[in-house]
């Protein structure tokens, strides 16, 4: 199959494989990620979905937003589920019971179902080398159950399980660098993307589908409820996350790191923190050290990425 050209006017003529009428909150980033992923290709796709906002709001008994075969698995086993489906498909093709149709296998999960609860099944599926793609939409907390901290929650964020108050000023740990952990599995393709840079995201999806073996894609998905922002700024915040290098866009193909898009000018991290209510307490005079520490962490991560790219 030839790779689909990514021109907005052409793409707009196509049919969405994720339907309206889903019950994600107004202004949610996750459905934008899903629609862009499914739009990037014409291959038949079978998906599994870990428990999370996307799962509970896209498929409520009798109503499904998906126009592709889709399986809901539990919180911890989305990767195991799709690896089983992929194996069954290969077996049925081998037995001559079905024809080879170039089916692609995808797993969708939030950061809770990826960084924390689903991590063991994800790591196992990657190690076994299944021909599948795992897509994590990272909104940085358990938004579905009421904004509890996850290991993807950034430093300083106020959540319901690390509330900023007299005892602690929000989350005191830095986020887990999952994209790099996935790259350490030695899988052929790992990338980080953003729905605001739709062309970059769709190119990565297209590239990943042409690679045989396990692939991992980490995508930022702003959540206005959990980030305490307005309903209209999901894309703007994803853009600022890229410009401040909080969410750099890069890919690691067979161990070689490449930054796919660099901001023209690296903006200070406060540009990303300021519009979000979950970081409000960090701007109090006594918490100034938090802003410094958060900036230092992002700078160190960015420097490391630049070094990795230079090393080839």
């Amino acid at each position: 199959m030839t790779t689909k050209p990514l021109r907005l006017k052409e793409l707009a003529k196509g049919e969405d494989r994720f339907a309206h009428g889903h019950r994600m909150c107004a202004g949610c980033g996750a459905p934008i990620v899903v629609k862009q992923v499914l739009m990037a290709t014409d291959y038949p796709i079978i998906a599994s979905n870990a428990t999370g906002c996307l799962e509970v709001s896209s498929c409520i008994q009798q109503f499904t937003a998906w126009k592709i075969p889709w399986i809901h698995s539990a919180f911890e086993n989305a990767a195991a589920t799709i690896s089983g489906v992929e194996t069954m498909y290969r077996s049925l093709v081998k037995q001559g019971k079905i024809e080879e149709q170039n089916v692609k296998f995808v797993s969708f999960a939030g950061d809770g179902g990826t960084y924390d609860i689903g991590f063991q099944s994800l790591s196992g599926a990657m190690e076994r080398g299944h021909d599948m793609m795992y897509i994590c939409y990272d909104n940085g907390a358990y938004m579905n159950t009421g904004i509890q901290r996850s290991s993807a929650t950034p430093f300083g964020a106020n959540t319901t399980t690390c509330p900023a108050g007299d005892a602690i000023p929000g989350k005191l740990q830095h986020r887990k660098d999952l994209t790099r952990i996935m790259a350490a599995h030695g899988i052929p393709y790992v990338a980080q993307a953003s729905p605001a840079n739709w062309m970059d995201l769709m190119k990565k999806v297209q590239k990943a589908f042409e690679i045989k073996g396990p692939k991992f894609l980490n995508v930022i998905a702003p959540c206005n409820r959990g980030w305490r922002t307005k309903t209209d700024d999901a894309i703007t915040l994803a853009k600022i996350a890229f410009e401040t290098c909080y969410w750099p866009l890069f890919e690691i193909e067979n161990g070689v790191t490449k930054i796919t898009s660099k901001p023209k000018e690296k903006k200070p991290l406060v540009d990303f923190l300021k519009p979000q209510g979950r970081f409000k307490h960090m701007f109090a005079p006594e918490n100034e050290w938090m802003l410094v520490q958060a900036q230092e962490y992002v700078d160190a991560q960015w420097e490391r990425l630049l070094k990795d790219e230079a090393a080839g």
């Binding site: 009428g21 896209s58 498929c59």
Partner: peptide, 18 residues
């Protein structure tokens, strides 16, 4: 509890949330 109709969420009109 398999949902047999693809994209059936279109029957749920979310416009009333606005």
């Amino acid at each position: 509890s398999v949902v047999l109709e693809a994209g059936s969420s279109a029957k749920f009109k979310t416009g009333s949330w606005r």
